[in-house]
């Protein structure tokens, strides 16, 4: 059991290392303008991002991402609750949700960008708006999935409306909400980059596109590398949060599978 775990770690961690090594070796003497040596890319990575443009561009992008995602998360959950619990709102929004469910969230990106424009505030708004729907839809689904028995328990024990929402519905819907947040996070990340690439002069996306348009391919690759690293780290953070908040769910699922 332990050995299998270690082996999986070695395979999981070793593969990217091997790929990087292969890239390094194969590109070492490259003179192709589109595929510069990895060494050059890494040097440019260090020069550009550590820490010349760190504050002006990296922090700016990350700030937009987190702010937009946070707004989307809070508003998505809140709107999901209102939609699921207030019948007139539900009747109005239900058909819309069924329609939106069929559209991949990324397909909405161009709409937000063209509607909202390119200032910093606008970029945060477009990130928040695009990332809102996955969380909202998941929240509605989550609340509808809460068992009637649980709600009967809440009523028999005379829980207040506030308690029913905060102490029963919210935790019970949390597994659904988190899968919605996961999608929202991906959408927020994509919209962050896309909104910077389209017409902004600041941010990682803008820098990367500018590098590509100025034939500074090493800089372009360095930008892409940075985006990859950020995406990876953000996902790890999210997954840590999820394991903390949903430890009861993960544990009970594991228990159910073992039984």
């Amino acid at each position: 059991m332990r050995n299998v775990k270690i082996r999986n770690w070695v395979i999981g961690g070793g593969t990217p290392v091997l790929l990087l090594a292969a890239w390094w070796l194969l590109s070492a003497n490259s003179s192709d303008p589109f595929f510069p040596p990895l060494e050059t890319i890494i040097v440019r990575f260090q020069e550009l991002w550590l820490f010349d443009h760190f504050q002006s561009d990296v922090l700016l992008s990350l700030g937009n991402l987190f702010l937009g995602f946070a707004i989307a998360g809070v508003a998505g959950v809140a709107l999901g609750f209102v939609t699921a619990l207030v019948p007139p709102v539900r009747w109005m929004i239900d058909p819309l949700i069924h329609f939106l469910r069929g559209i991949p969230p990324v397909a909405l990106v161009p709409i937000f960008i063209s509607l909202i424009g390119f200032g910093t505030g606008m970029r945060v708004t477009s990130i928040a708006l695009a990332a809102l729907f996955p969380t909202m839809i998941a929240t509605v689904d989550g609340i509808r999935g809460v068992s009637n028995d649980l709600m009967d328990v809440a009523r028999v024990y005379r829980l207040s409306r506030k308690e029913r929402v905060l102490n029963v519905l919210l935790p019970a819907a949390m597994p659904h909400i988190f899968s919605g947040l996961q999608v929202s996070l991906q959408v927020a990340f994509i919209v962050m980059i896309a909104s910077e690439m389209l017409g902004s002069s600041q941010g990682i996306g803008a820098m990367t596109l500018l590098a590509q348009q100025s034939f500074m391919t090493a800089d372009m690759w360095a930008g892409i590398l940075l985006l990859g690293v950020i995406g990876f780290l953000v996902n790890i953070l999210f997954s840590l949060l999820k394991h903390k908040v949903l430890s009861w769910y993960i544990g009970s699922r594991r228990m159910a599978r073992a039984a």
């Binding site: 068992s147 028995d149 649980l150 009967d152 328990v153 028999v156 024990y157 005379r158 829980l159 207040s160 308690e163 102490n167 029963v168 935790p171 019970a172 949390m174 009861w248 769910y249 009970s252």
Partner: peptide
């Protein structure tokens, strides 16, 4: 007070045993 047939769906799985007991008493 009511004890339901299906204990599986009448206890809050995100709360420990003690917190399950406390929930109806909070108010």
């Amino acid at each position: 007070a009511l004890v339901f047939q299906d204990y599986n769906r009448s206890l809050m799985p995100w709360l420990t045993v003690r917190k399950n007991l406390i929930l109806p008493l909070r108010h």
